[in-house]
C-alpha cells in the first residue's frame, strides 16, 4: 500500500524538458514566478499561460497529470476568490449586503488571482514531473555554490538531501512492516474517530523513530569507513565530485524562450496598462 506512494512525482519519459539542465529549470521557475507577479493584466497572464502550455507540450507530461496538482490548492483558491469578490473595494456595484459588496472590479480581480495561483502551481509541478529529486538536489547544490564563500556547508546540505531521498523508500517499507506487525497483534488503524486514529499512530511512530536512529548510526559508520571525513579535514583529501552538470544547446533554446517570456510580460505591462 505505502509502496505506491511515489515520492516526488517524477514522470519518466524522455523529452526536451526532461533533458534540460536542472539548474536552468530551477532558475526558470524562479523567473516564471516573478513574471506571474509582474504581469499586470490578462495579456501578461496570457503570455505566461502560453509559455506554460508550450513547456507542457515539450515535456510530454499528460495534461491531466498536471491538472492533478491544482486539486491541492482548490480550497485556498476558492476561499481567496470568495473573499476578494465580497470585500474588494470596487466602483461598479452589482449587489450589497452590509459590509459585503459584489463589484465588477472584485469579480475581475478574483479571476485574475485564481489564474495566477493556478499557473504558479501548475508550472511548479512541471518541474517536479520532469526532474528527478536527485537532479534537483544536484542543481540546487550547484546554484548554492557561491554560498560556500560564506563558509556555509553547501556540499553537506546536498548530502543530507540525498540521504533523505534515499531513505524514504526504506522507511516506507519499514512503516508498512511495523503496521503489519501491529495489525497482527490486533491494532486497528482504519476505524474510530480522528482522535482514536491519531492515537493509533503513536505505536507506529515510536518503533519507527528507534529504528531510524539505529539506521543513522550504522550509516554513519559506513560513511566513515568509506573515508567520509565531513568537516574534519586533517590528513584528508579534498572531496571531488563525480556528477557534472553541463549547459547544452538545449538549455540555450530554453533560455531564448524564457527571454521571450520576460520581454512579453514586461511589454504587455508597459503598453497595455494595468488590470483595472
Amino acid at each position: 500500500m505505502l509502496k505506491d506512494v511515489s515520492f516526488g512525482q517524477y514522470y519518466p519519459v524522455d523529452s526536451f524538458v526532461h533533458k534540460l539542465d536542472p539548474r536552468f529549470k530551477l532558475l526558470c521557475l524562479i523567473a516564471y514566478i516573478a513574471m506571474i507577479f509582474v504581469a499586470a493584466n490578462f495579456y501578461g497572464l496570457a503570455v505566461c499561460a502560453a509559455f506554460f502550455l508550450l513547456a507542457v507540450a515539450a515535456s510530454r507530461v499528460p495534461f491531466r497529470k498536471i491538472m492533478r496538482s491544482v486539486k491541492g490548492i482548490l480550497f485556498i483558491a476558492a476561499f481567496s476568490a470568495v473573499l476578494n469578490v465580497f470585500f474588494y473595494r470596487g466602483e461598479t456595484v452589482y449587489a450589497e449586503w452590509g459590509i459585503f459588496r459584489i463589484t465588477y472590479e472584485g469579480i475581475i480581480f478574483s479571476i485574475f488571482l485564481v489564474v495566477r495561483l493556478f499557473l504558479l502551481v501548475m508550472f511548479s509541478s512541471l518541474l517536479t514531473y520532469t526532474t528527478t529529486p536527485m537532479a534537483l538536489t544536484d542543481g540546487l547544490e550547484n546554484l548554492l555554490t557561491p554560498l560556500k564563500l560564506l563558509r556555509l556547508p553547501v556540499r553537506e546540505f546536498a548530502l543530507v538531501m540525498s540521504i533523505t531521498l534515499r531513505m524514504i523508500p526504506t522507511l516506507m517499507d519499514e512503516t508498512e512492516r511495523i503496521m503489519n506487525a501491529q495489525r497482527a497483534r490486533g491494532a486497528d488503524f482504519e476505524s474510530g474517530g480522528l482522535i482514536k486514529r491519531v492515537r493509533a499512530i503513536v505505536p507506529i511512530l515510536i518503533p519507527l523513530m528507534t529504528s531510524a536512529l539505529r539506521r543513522a548510526d550504522e550509516l554513519g559508520d559506513a560513511m566513515d569507513s568509506r573515508c567520509y571525513m565531513g568537516t574534519y579535514t586533517a590528513g584528508a583529501a579534498k572531496r571531488t565530485k563525480y556528477k557534472k552538470l553541463a549547459f547544452t544547446r538545449r538549455d540555450l533554446i530554453g533560455l531564448l524562450f524564457a527571454g521571450a517570456l520576460i520581454a512579453g510580460v514586461i511589454l504587455t505591462k508597459v503598453y497595455l496598462g494595468s488590470l483595472l
Binding site: P133, M134, L159, S162, I163, L165, R166, T170, R215, E218, L219, D221, A222, M223, S225, R226, C227, Y228, M229, A236, A237, K238, R239, T240, K241, Y242, K243, K244
Partner: peptide, 28 residues
Amino acid sequence: FQNPDNQAVASIVEDDIAFGAENIGLAR
C-alpha cells in the same frame, strides 16, 4: 556491514559507488 539497507548514501547505484571515490579526492 550487516544491513544492506543502511550503507548506501545515494538513491542511484552509480552515485552511491562514487561516494567513497569522491571522498578520497579522485578526479572525475
